[in-house]
Nucleic acid binder design. Sequence first.
DNA 1: ACGGCAACCAAACAAGTGCTTGGTAGGGTA
DNA 2: TACCCTACCAAGCACTTGTTTGGTTGCCGT
Lengths: 207, 207
Amino acid sequence: MPEPGATGATGENSSRRDELLRIAAGLFAEKGFKNTTVRDIADAAGILSGSLYHHFDSKESIVDELLVAFQTELFDRYDEILASDLDARGKIEAAVRLSFEAIHTRGPEVAIFQNDADFLGGFERFGYLAERNQQSRDVWMTLLREGIDSGVLRQDLDIEIIYRFIRDTVWVAVRWYRPGGELDHPEVADQYLHILLEGITEGTTHG
Amino acid sequence: MPEPGATGATGENSSRRDELLRIAAGLFAEKGFKNTTVRDIADAAGILSGSLYHHFDSKESIVDELLVAFQTELFDRYDEILASDLDARGKIEAAVRLSFEAIHTRGPEVAIFQNDADFLGGFERFGYLAERNQQSRDVWMTLLREGIDSGVLRQDLDIEIIYRFIRDTVWVAVRWYRPGGELDHPEVADQYLHILLEGITEGTTHG
DNA sequence: ACGGCAACCAAACAAGTGCTTGGTAGGGTA
DNA sequence: TACCCTACCAAGCACTTGTTTGGTTGCCGT
């Protein structure tokens, strides 16, 4: 007797289902959640819009599933970095590299989160988005404080601004980064870290 | 047949019209263009949705008018900086400060451009958005090349990445900057320039 | 008192939206 | 053969969307 699984509307391990999720993710990322219709998704998949509801409860369920899976994975890895025995600078570098890797491997999900989190956050169902935001903030604030306390970072930095700065500047790269393009994600991360840590001017010494 | 003026649908100098533009800009910025309905705008203005069409041809006209006015003003000032007799570093600093000032004075327009340019660019009517993008690129590429040639910036920089980096990191501040908040825009610009030019690490000397 | 005009209302329309319902083709299993 | 199950179709529903049309209100100069 093949158990369909104690979960969602229909069997959750179907490869067809995964394919539909991938298709929807791409469209959501490209055109935005609200601006992507269930007919768009169905067309891209070669089926009728109603048939999507054999696989998913609702349009919201689709994006919900995408975001939850992505964020669970991402934050597990942030926690690993926090718990590691790297020094302050090493942790900051690791966190930045992880972010660019996420842009590489989960581009659509990152884009959806960047573009539609505000809108989706308005629904009760997506309340966890605000929590994840707070969690991200906690991670980075910890890292930055470690950096300042250990003398790696300048003492005069406004930690609040630096956090916003890093958060926004890292994730916004999802707008132009394309897997398979000229630069792969470790290279981009290196360049980014170089700018962030040392600036772009020639031979400066500050203090 | 009374000529109402050689311009748009109705008189163009009405203060009520300007008020409606301001209201629409705020909503577009907050919820996105596609996700803002004409009924939303009308509700916020205390009128019925149909009444908007006394002032504007279409929903698209509203956002078009907002963006054209904003970009005309902005790029005029970029040109002034390019034509000024500041040195390379001074021009870069001026361009960054101008951007943060724009976020301060034209926040909604900046947000609309950041969030909806991709979507709007798909329509013929908004083809100028791509041109403005190219123009912005030209400005910054010129500034960066000047910076490298004059020895202000490091020679090993990937100018293409630096451009994207500056463009994205400056404008993305519109997501959190609020006029009247703790930091005003000149302060934010200073902090940003400090990070960009010198980095966040302590006492580094490179080369 | 009058006409003109900006600003708005009231009601509707066609197209598009997310979603539902009842049915069916086809492969696997007993 | 009979059964079940996954994946889908065909058709439609209630609602929302941008937009149109004809009419109304109140102010302003003459």
